[in-house]
């Protein structure tokens, strides 16, 4: 069993990835190399961690990150409709970004705001009790702001 003191470089990997992601919204190949170098661990290890945990995105995301909640309460209240609407209105699927780099769509498991299902969060702001028409209006509003 490795002693903790010899092994604490790997303890820092998740934290380092989180810091970079919150700073620039995603993690580039260069970032992965840099983290591996700084912590003295293998690139393959950093890559494995970055791809195992769902939070990390290795692709650049748009200005607005739309997280559509698909928790149980949201699912029962047709969160699929919201995803469908974004699919057809913005032409992006789960994990994709619009070509103008404005919107990224991500389906997530639960945002914990179940009482106002279905909900989405856009850059951490929660919008609840949505319908297809409401999400379209919100997107239009954000587009107008540029």
């Amino acid at each position: 069993m490795l002693d903790r003191n010899n092994d604490n470089s790997s303890e820092e990997v998740i934290q380092a990835l989180q810091d970079i992601q919150s700073l620039q919204g995603y993690i580039s190949r260069e970032n992965l190399k840099e983290i591996s170098r700084n912590l003295g661990i293998a690139y393959s290890y950093t890559y494995a961690i970055a791809t195992f945990y769902k939070t990390f995105s290795l692709k650049e995301r748009g200005k607005y990150l739309i997280k559509v909640c698909d928790g149980t309460a949201c699912h029962l209240k047709s969160s699929e409709n919201i995803v469908d609407e974004i699919n057809s209105y913005l032409g992006i699927r789960n994990g994709e970004t619009t070509s103008d780099q404005m919107f990224t769509l991500e389906q997530v498991n639960c945002l914990g705001a179940c009482a106002m299902a279905p909900v989405v969060s856009i850059n951490e702001k929660i919008y609840g009790n949505l319908t297809r028409k409401k999400i379209r209006n919100i997107i239009d509003m954000l587009r107008g702001k540029k």
Partner: peptide, 10 residues
């Protein structure tokens, strides 16, 4: 707290 539809611990 990963269960979807649960927010007690949050």
């Amino acid at each position: 707290e990963g269960d979807p539809g649960a927010f007690m611990d949050r």
